[in-house]
């Protein structure tokens, strides 16, 4: 355990409370509001399932990144890291295009409770993915310069911290995908 690792675990615990409350709001209105039917009517579940797999596989590539940095193959590590960034970015593209198509169908935050809760929950998750991408890009820059030094000393904390954050963002999506998309299956 190092300082950054503990700090990131605590931060993630704090963020978890934030997301749990957004999810509870979604669930409450999915049960009580007639607009919940919008979920089944407008969401493209198979398409999002594909993008979910994309996001989940970025957790795998992130894991490989760490392993390769630690075992002393910085080239491979950077390749896995680039893959992680690409996967994360594609997920965001998927989410962005989904938003566009929903808004075209006039599904917006201000339309009804489905819109309000759906965009808030997925939007904040998307924001976290975006912040994660910035951190991954920074990590990539450091990795280019420092190579395997990234897995030792002070930088080890950065690698570990960002990894924890990224896995957290991915695991939040498991829950969001379940309550928003799987629950909308008919």
């Amino acid at each position: 355990m190092n300082k950054i690792r503990l700090a990131m675990l605590l931060f993630v615990a704090s963020e978890a409370v934030f997301f749990i409350l957004l999810m509870i709001a979604y669930v409450v209105y999915h049960v009580t509001s007639p607009s919940a039917a919008d979920a089944s009517r407008y969401l493209d579940i198979p398409r999002t399932a594909v993008f979910s797999v994309v996001l989940f596989s970025s957790s795998f590539t992130m894991w490989r990144t760490g392993v390769k940095f630690r075992t002393g193959s910085p080239r491979l590590a950077l390749a896995w890291l680039a893959a992680t960034i690409a996967l994360g970015a594609s997920f965001l593209v998927g989410e962005g295009t989904e938003y566009v198509s929903l808004i075209r169908k006039d599904v917006t935050v201000g339309r009804d409770l489905f819109g309000t809760t759906f965009f808030t929950l997925t939007g904040f998750h998307g924001l976290h993915v975006f912040i994660g991408l910035i951190m991954l890009a920074a990590l990539f820059g450091i990795g280019l310069k420092r190579g395997t030094a990234i897995a030792s000393g002070k930088l080890a904390g950065a690698l570990e911290g960002i990894t924890i954050y990224w896995h957290f963002v991915d695991s939040v999506w498991i829950f969001i995908f379940t309550i928003v998309y799987l629950w909308a299956l008919r």
């Binding site: 704090s14 963020e15 409370v17 934030f18 409350l21 957004l22 709001a25 409450v28 209105y29 009580t32 509001s33 007639p34 607009s35 935050v109 201000g110 009804d112 409770l113 819109g115 309000t116 809760t117 965009f119 808030t120 904040f124």
Partner: peptide, 29 residues
């Protein structure tokens, strides 16, 4: 504190993006 933050951003969304989290006009509680 993150619980307050969640409530605050939801309120902000209600006020500025016309959401309905806490607004009874469209079923908000």
């Amino acid at each position: 504190v993150p619980a307050l933050n969640a409530a605050l951003v939801m309120l902000f969304i209600d006020r500025h993006l016309h959401g309905f989290f806490f607004n009874p006009v469209a079923g908000g509680k």
